[in-house]
Amino acid sequence: MSLRLDRLAVQLDWNLLRTFMVIIQERSITGAATRLNVTQPSVSAALRRLEERLELRLVERGSGQSFVITRAGEAVYREALEIYGGVVRLNDIDASDGLSLAGNLVIHRSSHLETERIMNVLADFRRQHPGVTFSVRSVSCADVTQALLHRISSIGFCTRVDPSIQRLEAMALTPQEFGAYCGPAHPLYRQQVADPALLAESDIVGFEEDQIAGALSTLTRFRMRHGIGARFIAAASGIVDLVDLIESGTAIGFLSRGHAVRYGFKLWQIPLDVPPPVVEVYSLVDSERLMSPLEVALLEHLETEGIARQPRRRSEV
């Protein structure tokens, strides 16, 4: 190791790298300062010190707080993510026998997904490894992707995959069938035959991603194709809120059948004379992430159950 590299390894402050990570993730100095609960000048100073220490220009400053990350900055960001992952994996070290299958696993899932089978498989994994805990976070499909790209999540489950992000390996799972539902106040409630005119003039409520450019565009196109709904009046980020909107109002909403059975005690599935819409479901894994032994074990378990597969780094493809 050269004298310069040795000095860098000894003297570089990890907090500078962490601050740089947050700057890139938040895409602004202001956002990074808010997230880190420090002042904007402190964040700017940390970025400047990191550039001086590395002797690299990491970002090109624009007007105000705007900036563009340089190629060197992108490389440093990737390395910082790996370092961060290594620090987090220190939680998996047991004093008695070194690396053990214990620790917390973060999993991100789309809030509109029905995940009963996935949760059952995770529960089975935890029964085999009692020292394991899970943090399951329900977010939008876009946030599932970002959580994986930022090394926050071990695995993600969503209904849309961005083919341009090659490092995220997607595995298609069993698609989910959705149905049209209404509450007691809707004129189609308990009706065995759906009046096309009532379907066409009904208001619609749905998930935030139920739009033509959203992750649930399948539902939007289905309604347009079959003349269901006059206007979209309310959006919900989670299943409980959407069920409340349908049950307490006079609008129609589309839910996965599993969710409707579990949460919609007063819901009525409107009989349609066309096949129901089907939404694709995927598991996502970052192929460039250096997995901890705990994460490897989880993915092996999920692969056995047909829910995910171990990623292959590009060098292995």
Score class of each variant (00 low, 15 high):
L290G: 05
Q269V: 05
H150N: 12
S248P: 01
T145P: 01
L168R: 01
E295P: 01
V161E: 03
Q176M: 04
G31L: 01
V121W: 01
L299C: 05
M291D: 06
G85F: 05
R314V: 05
M171R: 11
L148F: 08
C158S: 10
L5H: 13
I83Y: 07
S28F: 13
H186D: 08
A72L: 11
R314Q: 09
R49F: 02
E26K: 15
P175M: 11
W268T: 04
N15A: 13
H259C: 14
L54R: 09
F20T: 02
E60W: 08
I29P: 01
D241H: 08
Q310R: 13
L290R: 11
S44M: 13
R4T: 12
S44K: 13
V193K: 01
V193M: 00
L245W: 06
S138H: 09
Q269D: 08
E305S: 12
A194H: 06
L302D: 07
L272W: 00
H150G: 04
L58V: 04
I69N: 00
F232W: 13
V43N: 10
A297K: 00
T159Q: 04
V243E: 04
A102D: 11
A297M: 00
W268N: 03
R223E: 03
N120F: 03
D6T: 14
A123Y: 08
E60S: 06
R160W: 14
V139E: 03
R35N: 12
R313C: 04
M119F: 07
A170E: 15
V278L: 05
